[in-house]
Amino acid sequence: MTQKKFDLEERFVDLAACIATFCHDLPNDFTGQYYGNQLLRSTGSAALNFGEAQGTTTDKDFVYRATITFRELKESRVNLKILNKIDYGNKSISLGLLDEVEQLIKITATVIKKKR
């Protein structure tokens, strides 16, 4: 039986979907809307730019898109840390999301280094 290769794109899609669900449950006040909207944008952008990176034709273009992905993930990490610090959202879910973001940051950094 052949083991299926892990799909990195699927991890980005899952992260963006889980973040959307997490943000849906944030308090509907200015703080919740501000950080929730920003988190939705940064994780969505990370997923979309990673997908776009896979379609590039040169290593330079790939590194450019992957670097955008990396920066958006780092923004998402800080956002989740802020939300945890101010006790917004489900703490156990946000810690799981933060762990996944950390893992994707490390993977993306490694991929970028290998392509340079």
Score class of each variant (00 low, 15 high):
58 T>G: 04
47 A>V: 01
19 I>D: 01
56 T>D: 02
49 N>F: 03
52 E>R: 06
4 K>L: 14
63 V>S: 01
46 A>H: 06
68 I>Y: 02
5 K>P: 00
38 Q>C: 01
47 A>G: 11
91 K>V: 13
56 T>M: 12
31 T>A: 15
28 N>F: 08
40 L>Q: 15
39 L>E: 00
41 R>G: 03
6 F>C: 07
44 G>D: 06
97 L>A: 06
1 M>S: 11
64 Y>R: 13
53 A>V: 05
102 E>Q: 13
41 R>M: 09
56 T>Q: 12
62 F>H: 10
88 Y>H: 02
47 A>Y: 02
90 N>K: 13
13 V>K: 04
98 L>G: 04
45 S>D: 07
97 L>E: 02
73 L>G: 01
20 A>E: 14
88 Y>W: 04
41 R>T: 07
5 K>A: 09
88 Y>C: 01
51 G>K: 03
93 I>S: 08
63 V>F: 04
17 A>R: 11
113 K>P: 03
48 L>Y: 12
112 I>K: 09
37 N>M: 13
62 F>L: 11
89 G>W: 02
64 Y>N: 11
67 T>E: 12
47 A>I: 04
67 T>W: 05
14 D>V: 10
102 E>S: 13
69 T>I: 03
44 G>I: 06
8 L>C: 05
112 I>L: 12
80 L>S: 02
40 L>E: 09
92 S>Y: 12
26 L>D: 00
18 C>S: 11
69 T>L: 03
7 D>Q: 10
9 E>G: 15
7 D>F: 07
90 N>V: 11
116 R>L: 10
66 A>M: 06
29 D>G: 12
8 L>T: 10
93 I>C: 05
32 G>P: 06
32 G>T: 06
23 C>H: 08
24 H>M: 07
61 D>F: 03
52 E>P: 08
53 A>D: 01
51 G>T: 10
106 K>C: 07
6 F>E: 15
21 T>I: 10
79 N>I: 14
75 E>N: 08
85 K>G: 12
112 I>C: 11
108 T>A: 04
109 A>H: 13
82 I>M: 14
24 H>Q: 15
17 A>P: 03
76 S>E: 00
96 G>I: 07
53 A>R: 00
97 L>K: 00
34 Y>M: 14
48 L>V: 14
76 S>H: 00
15 L>I: 05
115 K>D: 08
82 I>F: 14
70 F>D: 01
43 T>C: 05
46 A>F: 03
69 T>N: 01
13 V>L: 11
111 V>Q: 00
48 L>P: 09
86 I>F: 06
74 K>M: 08
93 I>M: 11
104 L>S: 05
29 D>P: 05
94 S>I: 07
35 Y>G: 01
64 Y>L: 06
49 N>V: 01
101 V>A: 04
56 T>H: 04
88 Y>V: 00
75 E>H: 10
62 F>E: 08
